[in-house]
Write a protein that binds this DNA or RNA. Structure first.
Length: 925
DNA sequence: GTTCGTACTTAGCATTGGCTGG
DNA sequence: CCAGCCAATGCTAAGTACGAAC
């Protein structure tokens, strides 16, 4: 095989390992072909030098070498980060983020060990087989991916057709089909326009204002004296309730609580932006903006004197600040997942010691210094249990309080918080998403995050930047404090912002999902995805062609596009490998994440966003297979990028040449919505089936989309048990149904002929043994119920000063259980069931049986749904990927109320979709 | 081009609170 | 009517993306 030099002189997109050659000669290609054709039964010889990556064993190996960075470029000079733990907790230390994945060459790769493999959270994907997807497609034994892929193939074909059609009709400019404005125009409308973020608005201004350097953990020195406005004339209002600064507002939309229809209604007229003409310039987000700032968490309350942290068996005196840190740990002892994680402990302990030192150390009761040296979990030198118990106690007590008290407290709190929950945006009252500043605590990163356990510090007003209208009164910071800055950037949608100390990330206070800005953005997102429909065939044709490009970069790009399009992979931005969990997306896939099996099978196994495992086996296009093999060609090895000549920026730049605003992310939206659309269309809704079944069908579609997007959830600890319980309930009901039917015979034996013997047969999943057991269970259940009731009655009598029932009474009552037992015995023997109830008639019993039947069907549906959802989360795709208008249309077509699909909040969030589509069933994605 | 800084969307798990069925 | 359960909501971490600065 053409030996391509690993270190090419051509600049590479990324060079953190071995590079691929910039060009691919015909010979190279042929060589690849050849190697492929000698396909052997097993995995290809090519490239999988170290054995298939495949998870588990490989994964265990690295165990807890915690603390130590996974992989350091051991090469290069010190400049590299050096992850000295002690340094990082330190104020002055450089903030992590800085060294984004190293871009220097790691030469000498002699360097034995590959990147330590992730330990992962690893949820295994639901193989389509066990996910009860119903008939996803024809053949049943294909792996998940393949099936979906097949489905997709047909969907894609349809897509291409659509695209052509769309372009054609587009050409004709207006097809104006009576529809409401919004949907037709959308495509070439301003709203859907380039989404360029216009610099930072009043960039200069903004810049200056929150000159928070990501990197610098700096003390925040130069808090702006320069913040021009802060001094605002009218301090006036911050306290006032929502309507606050009524003063000079447009008042047009305001319309105070006046004539609202009926009670309970809000006091504002809603803004139906989807009916309004579109904004010319959507980079300006608002013209006036008023709000009251943010809610800070309550101050720390010291522990009672009797509650201490213990070290080496002795209680320890701590200054307030360390004590608080100790409580962070102490109050989460129940979360063994965190508390027992060595990285968590290490990070916590380091930070703890720092604060301890800073506050003058620990003392014993007599005031003598105690040096806290070891964390020592097995032999707990540092013992938090007293703290834990303390919080547990007060927590329980709080919970146990009378409902009225709790309610009163909540009401009081709500009153205090009310002013912060809404803002006035262009004169309209809008809900704020989460107006709270995040409370201090211990950082819990997902997956194997190197910083988990680090102390997340209390955020002071001095770190918070406020974004607000020029003419609006600036909210007063808490007494004795000031804001870090106040700015008036109307190209930003946030109201307040601060930088968090652990990773240097920005945190924003923004509007809620049901607000106009968010809604418009959401709308725009889906319109963008719909726009892609018009280009998808061309894009697919192009990348298919480019899969054979001689230019390595192009070929890689085409291959990546294939993966993103086909398997809904995320873009895969570069990450900072030392300070973040090691997760990847398409462009950052590494050698070990992709395993190839001749002739055309690709196995993906990697941790994606949130350290959720992506495991799938797909059959791919031959050329894609070949390319991947090439991208993995020696000398590449574990740890090396597959797409070493591709970055997300390059990819997106290319995509945007097809369509303004097209990025990798749009494909996920597009594919999810398009898939949902196709699946729903395939459902031939029989209007006669019960609503529950229609919902189930919808959920099945939803689930397929969720699987496509790899949206998972951990199966709850109790899942197995719950399923079993549900199963038993179903069986119990079936048994009862059978008994009811038998009673019919008891009333009228001629019914057997009339209805046929089959009607009276026992359900196939009930057998004698189970029945016996179930009968026993029922008897037992009755017994405990009676006993419980008895006890309760007695308690009551006692409370009322009466004397309790004698034991005899209990025995008397328990006779009922005995009788039940006897009854079952008799039934078992005679194979007959005596009709129960007063005046049993055939009709009545039939009715009962029918009722039971319906309940059984319902429960079975529920059970299947639940099992299918065991490890698939439907919510994420519903909230973020599936065009809500699809659901609205489906609901209308199937005549199912929209509430069955969208919760209250979702209905608020998707109000635009619900209202703009209305009951127009002809809307299409 | 790469890196940095920023802002906004997407994500799963924890907590809450309303409902159901015993 | 109440407990127990689950869906809905809350919380905040972790992605994507893109202009500006280097």
């Amino acid at each position: 095989m053409a030996s391509d030099s690993s270190d090419d002189d051509v600049p590479l997109a990324r060079t953190n390992g071995h590079a691929s050659a910039p060009r691919i000669s015909k010979a190279d290609d042929r060589a690849m072909d050849k190697s492929m054709s000698k396909a052997r039964p097993g995995p290809t010889g090519v490239s999988i030098r170290n054995g298939p990556v495949r998870s588990d064993d490989a994964m265990d190996m690295d165990s807890p070498a915690k603390g130590a960075p996974k992989r350091k470029p051991r090469s290069s000079l010190g400049q590299s980060v050096y992850y000295k733990d002690d340094s990082d907790s330190d104020e002055g230390a450089p903030m992590a983020k800085r060294q984004k994945a190293r871009h220097q060459k790691v030469e000498s790769d002699s360097d034995n060990e590959p990147i330590a493999k992730k330990k992962q959270n690893g949820k295994l994907p639901p193989s389509i087989k066990d996910t009860n997807l119903g008939d996803l497609s024809d053949d049943d034994d294909e792996p998940l991916g393949t099936k979906l892929a097949q489905k997709k193939a047909s969907i894609e074909k349809a897509a291409a057709k659509e695209a052509r059609a769309a372009r054609a009709s587009d050409a004709k400019a207006k097809k104006a089909t009576s529809k409401k404005a919004i949907k037709e125009e959308s495509d070439d409308e301003p709203l859907a326009k380039p989404k360029k973020r216009q610099s930072n608005g009043s960039a200069a201004l903004a810049k200056k204002a929150n000159g928070v350097k990501k990197a610098s953990t700096k003390k925040e020195p130069e808090s702006d004296s320069d913040a021009p406005i802060a001094t605002k004339a009218k301090r006036a209002a911050p306290a006032a309730k929502g309507k606050a600064a009524t003063a000079k507002k447009p008042a047009k939309f305001v319309k105070e609580e006046s004539k609202e229809n009926g009670e309970g209604e809000e006091d504002e007229e809603e803004f139906r932006w989807w009916d309004a003409p579109k904004k010319e310039d959507d980079s300006i987000k608002w013209t006036t903006l008023e709000h009251n700032g943010v809610i800070f968490p309550p101050p720390y309350e010291r522990l009672p004197k009797s509650v201490k942290l213990y070290y080496d068996g002795k209680p320890v005196e701590l200054e307030e600040e360390v004590e608080e840190v100790a409580t962070f740990f102490g109050s989460m002892l129940h979360s063994t997942q965190n508390v027992e994680n060595p990285t968590f402990q290490k990070n916590f302990f380091n930070d703890f010691k720092d604060v301890l030192k800073k506050t003058g150390g620990a003392k014993d009761r007599a005031g003598n210094k105690i040096e806290i040296k070891d964390f020592d979990k097995d032999f707990p030198k540092l013992d938090f249990t007293k703290i834990y118990e303390h919080y547990k106690t007060i927590g329980d007590a709080k919970k146990a309080r009378p409902a009225a008290e709790k309610k009163a407290e909540k009401a009081a709190r709500d009153l205090v918080e009310a002013p912060f929950l809404f803002c006035k945006w262009d004169g309209r009252k809008e809900k704020i998403g989460n107006p709270r500043v995040e409370p201090p605590g211990l950082f819990r990163g997902r997956g194997e995050h190197p910083k988990t356990g680090t102390v997340k510090k209390r955020v002071l007003p001095e770190q918070v930047t406020i974004n607000i209208g020029k003419d609006a009164p600036v909210p007063a910071p808490p007494k004795g404090h000031k804001w870090k800055a106040v700015q008036h950037d109307n190209k930003a949608t946030w109201l307040a912002m601060w930088q968090e100390n652990v990773n240097g990330n920005y945190k924003y206070i923004m509007l809620a999902a049901n607000s106009a800005v968010k809604g418009q953005a959401d709308f725009k997102k889906f319109e963008k995805a719909r726009e892609l429909k018009k280009h998808i065939d061309r894009i697919r044709a192009d990348y298919t062609k480019e899969l054979r490009s001689e230019i390595m970069a192009d070929r890689q790009r085409a291959t990546a596009m294939y993966l993103i399009d086909e398997f809904a992979l995320r873009a895969g931005n570069e990450k900072d490998t030392d300070n973040e969990a090691e997760t990847v997306g398409c462009c950052s896939l590494k050698f070990e994440h992709v395993t190839l099996e001749d002739p055309d099978k690709v196995i993906f196994d990697f941790l994606g966003k949130d350290s959720i495992r992506f495991y799938n086996e797909f059959k791919v296009d031959r050329q894609v297979f070949k390319n991947l093999k090439m991208f993995k060609k020696a000398p590449k090895e574990e740890g090396d990028d597959i797409f070493d000549r591709l970055t997300t920026t390059q990819l997106n730049k290319h995509l945007s040449s097809y369509m303004t605003g097209l990025t990798a992310k749009v494909f996920r939206t597009y594919n999810a919505s398009w898939t949902m659309s196709s699946l729903l269309q395939e459902l031939k809704i029989d209007q006669n089936i019960p609503v529950a079944e229609k919902i189930k069908l919808y959920n099945d579609c939803n689930r397929k989309v969720a699987i496509l997007c790899n949206h998972k959830r951990t199966v709850g600890a109790g899942h197995e048990a719950q399923m079993e319980k549900l199963g038993d309930r179903i069986k119990g009901m079936k048994y009862q149904k059978w008994r009811t039917k038998m009673m019919i015979l008891d009333v009228d034996s001629k019914q057997k002929k009339r209805k046929g013997a089959e009607y009276f047969e026992l359900d196939s999943d009930l057998d004698e043994e189970w029945i016996l057991q179930h009968q026993q269970f029922l008897v037992e259940e009755l017994r405990t119920k009676i006993t419980k009731k008895f006890e309760k009655d007695n308690e009551k009598r006692e409370a009322d000063g009466e004397k309790p029932f004698p034991e005899k009474e209990l025995a008397e009552r328990l006779k009922a259980a005995k009788e039940l037992e006897a009854k079952y015995k008799k039934e078992n023997k005679t194979k007959k069931v005596e009709a129960e109830g007063k005046g049993p008639t055939v009709e009545k019993l039939e009715g009962q049986a029918e009722k039971l039947d319906e309940r059984i069907r319902n429960l079975e549906l529920q059970s299947a749904d639940r099992e299918g959802n065991k490890e698939v989360a439907l919510g994420t795709s519903k909230i973020n990927y599936i065009d809500p208008r699809l659901t609205v249309v489906f609901a209308a077509k199937a005549k199912v109320p929209i509430e069955k699909f969208f919760s209250k909040t979702l209905r608020d969030k998707f109000k635009w979709a619900i209202e703009s589509v209305g009951d127009d069933e002809s809307w299409e994605f």
